[in-house]
Design a protein around this nucleic acid. Structure first.
Length: 522
RNA sequence: GGUCGGUUCAUCUAAGGGUUAGGAUUCAAGAUUUUCAUUCUUGCCAUAGGGGUUCGAAUCCCCUACCGACUGCCA
């Protein structure tokens, strides 16, 4: 096992190099809250010229999902959060999967037993489950702690001989932390300030499981130490285990190089109680995962921001502003700007409700910034799926005209389908409002006028049309609107003459004639 | 239940003892667009409650209420 070089010289360095890690568990798709944690770690590392490390916390064999690690890496890549070190990325502290570091942890766990900070526990999970449910039915809660440990089956309550006998016989055991009885543990959280816990209320957490794997608590402390992590930035759900982690650093004698902690606020449901869950997304029609995910067990598909048409820049931006702000009124920030402006002391303490409407707004901002050429390139595959035969130049023209009314690439079809297919039906309300007895005569004359136009460009058509209308003394509004109905099928869309231009002379005239045949006179 | 954390417009948030409590989203109204959308303007809307400290509190302290996280040989 190669020890990380940073651990060796971290104490001698006056200014430690900033090293942070994103440490997800591969149990399924990454939640957007997890992505935000990754983002804040990334921003902090970049801002401080440090390293952003990906570490896979796969110590729970029962919950391991094989595709999840790839999903995590792909999500990070999609967002542009490329780890400096991690599985598949290399680095001096490899391996970065805890399952591949398995041999490391047992020694550390035994070291704590030797020094009296931990003990062997022979109680089976079934036995503990029984105690828990018994306590529950008595209206109490069972806790494996300083009050109960001597009544249970462990190396504290059993004789030395009995313990040796059991271990010698190969009886399975776990190693538990021996929580001190009455100690105040205080830590300066970079986001929350001073936080204090008394060990009286804390239980004896399992550090090393009977299956030979460490628990999160042991593994994360050992690895953060070996990987010379300087700052732990993680979700608020970890706050209750902070005293245990601090005490572990103390027990190992690593307190002087212990990382600084920051606990991020939760992302909450748009409405109602609790933290944001997959269910909320399903119910309200928005993704909670960066990428779509197909559950390997059930085959159930969860939508993703990427597949729903969000731009990664927009996703990053909206995530960054959930619980953080730059202190200015700027809301649209690129990853570079976020990096330059990020700081932990501007992270808010309270949980943020996720607002899907604002998420849409963010995407809109990025879409509006993009040139028509780029939007057209993204739209072409969608048109291809619909068997639309067209040219890129035409798609660019369409994008130019209708992007202002779109929030997502997928909106372009709804907003501009008539550029590619002639209307087959006509909006009844619009027809009822605009279609007058004189309409057929007027439109016939307009079609005739159009056929004679030589230079088919919007400004030219507009002038000829206007002159003609003035000459005839017809009602501008009504003729323009009926003309729009013929071309578009309803009363929406951009400038009428731009539509004419993009459609082309033949098609414009053809649509007028077709509508005159299909729409009955009032 | 216990421990810890949190509480400014409906939502995201600014204001780190002194501002008419600011911005953004949503919503509403008006203007422009001979349509629709956009855009612009305007409007609505907040310091959880109660006590202190102070000349002065959203900001500091205490209590209450409410919300949340955690309370597994899960992470």
């Amino acid at each position: 096992m190669v020890l990380c070089i940073f651990a060796a010289n971290s104490k001698t360095m006056t200014q430690k190099r900033v090293r942070v890690r994103f440490a997800p568990s591969p149990t399924g798709p990454l939640h957007m809250g997890g992505m935000r944690t990754a983002l804040f770690n990334y921003l902090f590392a970049r801002k401080n010229g440090g390293d952003f490390i990906l570490r896979i916390e796969d110590t729970d064999q029962t919950r391991y999902v094989h595709q999840a690690e790839d999903y995590i890496v792909e999500s990070l890549k999609w967002c542009g959060l490329i780890p400096d070190e991690g599985p598949g990325f290399g680095g001096p502290c490899a391996p970065y999967r805890q399952s591949e570091r398995k041999e490391i942890y047992a020694d550390y766990a035994r070291q704590l037993v030797k020094s009296g900070w931990a003990y062997y526990s022979f109680d089976t999970p079934e036995e503990l489950d029984r105690l828990r449910s018994e306590a529950e039915s008595a209206g109490a809660l069972f806790s494996y702690d300083q009050h109960t440990r001597m009544k249970l089956c462990n190396s504290l309550s059993l004789s030395r001989e009995e313990v040796n006998r059991r271990i010698g016989a190969g009886e399975p055991y776990a190693i538990r932390f021996k929580m001190p009885e009455n100690v105040d543990v205080t830590n300066e959280d970079l986001i929350r300030g001073s936080v204090t816990f008394n060990t009286r209320e804390l239980d004896d957490k399992v550090l090393f499981k009977s299956d030979g794997m460490p628990t999160y608590h042991l593994a994360n402390v050992v690895d953060d130490h070996l990987m010379a992590i300087t700052h732990v930035i993680r979700g608020e759900e970890w706050l209750p285990s902070l005293p245990l982690h601090v005490l572990l650093y103390r027990a190992f004698g690593w307190e002087d190089t212990m990382p600084e902690f920051s606990h991020l606020p939760l992302i909450l449901k748009p409405h109602g109680k609790g933290k944001l869950s997959k269910r909320d997304g399903d119910q309200m029609g928005f993704p909670v995962f960066p990428l779509a995910w197909k559950d390997p067990e059930t085959g159930e598909i969860s939508r993703g921001y990427r597949e729903d048409g969000y731009f990664p820049e927009a996703f990053i931006n909206l995530l960054a502003l959930l619980g953080w702000n730059p202190g200015t009124e700027q809301e649209i920030l690129s990853l570079e700007e976020l990096t330059a402006q990020f700081s932990l002391d501007r992270v808010v303490k309270s949980g943020s409700r996720f607002d899907p409407e604002k998420a849409r707004w963010f995407n809109r901002q990025y879409l509006q910034q993009k040139p028509a050429q780029e939007l057209a390139r993204l739209l072409v595959p969608l048109l291809y799926e619909k068997n639309i035969d067209t040219t890129l130049a035409r798609v660019v023209d369409v994008c130019e005209e209708i992007k202002v009314r779109c929030d997502f690439i997928s909106d372009f079809w709804e907003q501009g389908h008539y550029f590619f297919t002639a209307p087959s039906t006509y909006d009844e309300k619009a027809v009822a409002k605009r279609w007058k007895p004189e309409t057929p005569e007027e439109l016939t004359a307009i079609a005739c006028l159009f056929e004679s136009v030589e230079t088919w460009e919007a400004p030219v058509v507009k002038v000829l049309f206007s002159d003609f209308m003035n000459e005839k003394g017809w009602n501008f509004g009504n003729v323009m609107n009926t003309l729009r109905i013929c071309l578009v099928g309803g009363n929406q869309g951009p400038d009428l003459f731009r539509i004419c231009e993009i459609l082309g002379k033949q098609e414009t005239v053809a649509r007028i004639k077709s509508a005159l045949l299909k729409i009955p006179n009032p």
